[in-house]
């Protein structure tokens, strides 16, 4: 999968926003992931060319940070917090429930309909609402298996997901 001309143009416009061109690499990878849902080898090479940095450098950055997807994920990728505060409030049970409900046996595996994948993550900074998860750039709080069922039902009706941040929070001022 390669990038559209539109996204490449946006990437080429990034560098002047930063004191050094390297700082534009991660924002560029964000744009890639918004368009393709993941970082493909070809797209990372395109980013390297557009920003005139070494392709190995781009890959080195992409592999360090856990929010970058190097493998396909579902249209709705669920980041379920499983650090201590959430675990004390039942995160393990939720994770098991989610895996069963979407029909996957492993974390990171995409459901047969392509809609879902789930991943346990470290503290998301919303521990007073534990257990919680993040999906489509939003937080969901005070979760129970029943609440998960409601969310999954809602997401099943939304077959495209909301990869773009601007759609998740419409008034997003990009700065």
């Amino acid at each position: 999968m390669t990038l559209s001309d539109h996204t490449l143009k946006e990437i080429r416009e990034l560098p002047p926003k930063y004191p050094h061109i390297r700082s534009a690499v991660m924002p560029a990878l964000d744009l890639v992931q918004e368009e393709l849902g993941m970082l493909t080898q070809e797209a990372m090479t395109q980013v390297a060319q557009a920003l005139q940095v070494d392709p190995g450098y781009v890959e080195g950055v992409a592999t360090f940070y856990s929010l970058f997807h190097l493998e396909p994920v579902g249209k709705h990728h669920l980041y379920v917090c499983n650090n201590l505060s959430c675990q004390l409030r039942g995160a393990e049970e939720l994770l098991t429930h989610i895996k069963e409900s979407i029909g996957v046996s492993e974390y990171g595996q995409v459901s047969a309909d392509g809609l879902f994948s789930v991943e346990p993550v470290e503290c998301l900074g919303a521990c007073e609402y534990a257990p919680m998860l993040r999906a489509d750039h939003r937080f969901h709080y005070d979760l129970t298996p029943a609440k998960i069922d409601t969310l999954l039902k809602e997401w099943r009706g939304d077959r495209e997901g909301k990869k773009a941040r601007k759609e998740a929070h419409p008034r997003a001022g990009s700065h």
Binding site: V25, D30, F64, Y65
Partner: peptide
């Protein structure tokens, strides 16, 4: 924006990340 790495809270790792590098 960060991209999911606890170590970026450590101040010098944060600076590396802000400069576009592995933190």
């Amino acid at each position: 924006r960060g991209h999911g790495a606890y170590i970026c809270g450590e101040e010098t790792a944060l600076l590396e990340s802000l400069e576009g590098k592995r933190a």
